[in-house]
């Protein structure tokens, strides 16, 4: 099993956060999981990691609909950060709006990071897939 150093979960719904954590626990070896309730807190966290020269998360689970700064706004800011490594960003949303899907395609083509699009609920199989491709 691959070992992951740092995983980020960005979601304002505690149940989703609980679920994702629980599944990760059972299928992945990792050092740290950090959870943020909205995009703003998450991007500030990443900027702090950069400042302190700490390791950035290798996998990010990102919700779209959040207060203050939503998933898209986070993504917009995140891909503009000077990060050389390829980070696995997994959008996890309950939106089935075609606009969101097109936005994802647009962002995926704009960045060297690997961005995937997943509908809630995500299952164990998907988590394994995600971790594998990271």
């Amino acid at each position: 099993m691959t070992k992951i150093n740092h995983i980020y979960i960005i979601d304002d719904d505690p149940i989703t956060v609980f679920g994702i954590r629980k599944m990760i626990d059972s299928v992945v070896q990792f050092d740290v999981i950090t959870t943020h309730g909205n995009g703003k807190l998450a991007i500030e966290g990443i900027k702090n990691l950069q400042k302190e020269n700490q390791k950035l998360p290798e996998v990010i689970f990102l919700d779209l609909n959040m207060p203050i700064m939503d998933g898209w706004q986070f993504l917009e800011e995140f891909i503009s950060l000077p990060i050389k490594t390829k980070i696995q960003i997994n959008i996890v949303t309950s939106s089935i709006d075609g606009i969101d899907k097109r936005k994802w395609e647009l962002y995926n083509s704009k960045t060297h990071h690997n961005v995937t699009f997943n509908h809630k609920p995500v299952g164990k199989k998907e988590i394994i897939e995600i971790i594998k491709s990271s």
Binding site: D13, I15, T16, G19, K22, N65, S94, S95, I96, D97, H119, K120, P121, V122, G123
Partner: peptide
């Protein structure tokens, strides 16, 4: 319809996930 679908989905997704656990 998007609102409905999104909002219902977010809850049902949670329900289904939790039941799975």
């Amino acid at each position: 319809s998007h609102i409905v679908s999104h909002n219902l989905r977010s809850h049902t997704a949670n329900l289904s996930m939790l039941l799975g656990f």
